[in-house]
Design a protein around this nucleic acid. Sequence first.
DNA 1: ATAATAGTGTCTCTGAGACATTATGAC
DNA 2: GTCATAATGTCTCAGAGACACTATTAT
Lengths: 222, 222
Amino acid sequence: MSHTYPILTVDIVLFTIKDDALHLLLSKRTNDTEAFPNQWALPGGYVHVNEDLNLIDTATRILQHKINIRKHLYLEQLETFSGPDRDPRGWSISQAFCAIIPFEDLQATPEIQWINVKEIQTHKLPFDHNLIAARAIERLQSKSSYSTLPIHFFKGQFTLSELQKVYEIILQQKLDKSSFRKRLDDMNMLTLIKGSFKGGAQRPAQLYKIKTDTTSWFKSTL
Amino acid sequence: MSHTYPILTVDIVLFTIKDDALHLLLSKRTNDTEAFPNQWALPGGYVHVNEDLNLIDTATRILQHKINIRKHLYLEQLETFSGPDRDPRGWSISQAFCAIIPFEDLQATPEIQWINVKEIQTHKLPFDHNLIAARAIERLQSKSSYSTLPIHFFKGQFTLSELQKVYEIILQQKLDKSSFRKRLDDMNMLTLIKGSFKGGAQRPAQLYKIKTDTTSWFKSTL
DNA sequence: ATAATAGTGTCTCTGAGACATTATGAC
DNA sequence: GTCATAATGTCTCAGAGACACTATTAT
């Protein structure tokens, strides 16, 4: 039995909707690391046994300290990537997470960058981060096709038209308004905010928010 | 940043169909471990950086060395469990896997035991193995409801009636023969074995096998 | 009034389930 | 022939999508 330990990290694929397109976050690696210093990569870091209560906690801490995210985000285990070659420092394990943030909740800094997912394949990312990103996109699309996951792209309230648009951006296809609303109604995840409307130069739209006490629902991966 | 390392293990929930019921494997822990010696638990072990090419490889090695499984099994990442309290030895991470084996492929030994999943909650397992087992059962049921995953409970060939019975055992409900066959046909995962039949004292049934080159299909978790 | 978007109603068609019917072997 | 199970066909009903229609605001 070997007593050599693998490198143990957590990497996060953080999604947002920006300019009507799905984007994911890259962060600039520090210049004092042995592995790919100063390169753009998925945000990640080591597990800190003395601070973290579990790996989700690790992910949350990394988002707080490296990306300066204070709020509680939707965060879900994606998959574990492992092997001797994925990290130049040696045999490594990375627990990948999917996360979602409303665009307005994260302010721009020189250390972070949003990349349109359509362009992600043209960026050669370090480690196996291209693979991790691809898996995360697949998962996001898959879950969006049968759940209300995309509501996490909104901060608080939203109209059904806005929500439908986000679904269409993620799934890369037009959806029928009528069926979309019927399905959402069946899922029973939204409550309308009484007397609250959002209008431009047309008929104002009813605002909705996530029904409280129904947030745990998603967590299962199945 | 802490340089203390977590304990790193892989645990496997291995399923089979035995006596027309879904069972999972427990193995007896060795008496020289600090954690729960001689108790029955999910088979598991440490990651060996010098031997294993990745965590699936770790799982395969554990199945070979501890359970004496030589064949290639269906094996899929389930979820990662982590925290300071789940293992008495300290902060630990366990990558859990789901696996499936045809009952005939594993011979009984005093070190292993098949437990009916219906009785699993009455067994108090060490670590968080009750939770891991519960998640694995959920996942198996979920995937069985929309995929051909249950074909892995068979060794080579099987009839559609046999396969339907396994689905019914896993999903805990009767299925309609006609719809079941229509769906299987749509999935296009089986080929009939020409001229091969299996009969009792009734009309013999056509034997089928998994279509070659369509095995990678399942691996995605989504 | 018109423009523009919100929101609902109607129709059709597909697919799943319930059930009936036919097929094929052993005896 | 009967019995038992395999295999297929028919019917109905519910849900999804296509599309049309109505509603409500600003101008």
